[in-house]
């Protein structure tokens, strides 16, 4: 279990994926490639993503749970897919705001 709070960063231990929490609070089982993610900078990549969790995570995309209570931003991409409490997260739709500055 890890604590999700805005600004917290986590890394995968089975691929290069890293995320930062944009929205969320409380404890959750955060996994990438089927293996628990750890606080960024505290782990090494030692395995490979499980075949059923290897669709990949894309740099710069936002990932949300269906309840819209958690949003993660991928600050590094990787080959594993991220999930919370066993449920894969979906890519949030791109915003359509025009450039203002």
């Amino acid at each position: 279990m890890v604590e999700l709070k805005p600004g917290a960063r986590f890394q995968s231990t089975v691929c290069t994926t890293q995320v930062i929490v944009v929205k969320g609070d409380g404890e959750a089982e955060l996994t990438c490639g089927g293996t628990a993610m750890v606080a960024a900078g505290t782990g090494e990549i030692t395995g490979e993503p499980a075949p059923d969790a290897a669709e990949g995570t894309l740099l710069g995309k936002r990932y949300r749970n269906p309840e819209d209570t958690v949003e993660l931003l991928a600050t590094k991409g990787g080959s594993g897919s991220i999930a919370i409490d066993g449920a894969a997260l979906g890519v949030a739709e791109a915003k359509t705001l025009p450039a203002s500055d």
Binding site: G60, K61, L73, K95, L97, S100
Partner: peptide, 23 residues
């Protein structure tokens, strides 16, 4: 940092610009 990063994450799409865009 939290103010400016929130502003950017809230209003700009990462790599949202085409390779030919310039401001």
């Amino acid at each position: 940092h939290k103010h400016l990063v929130s502003y950017i994450l809230g209003s700009v799409e990462f790599m949202g610009a085409g390779a030919d865009e310039a401001t």
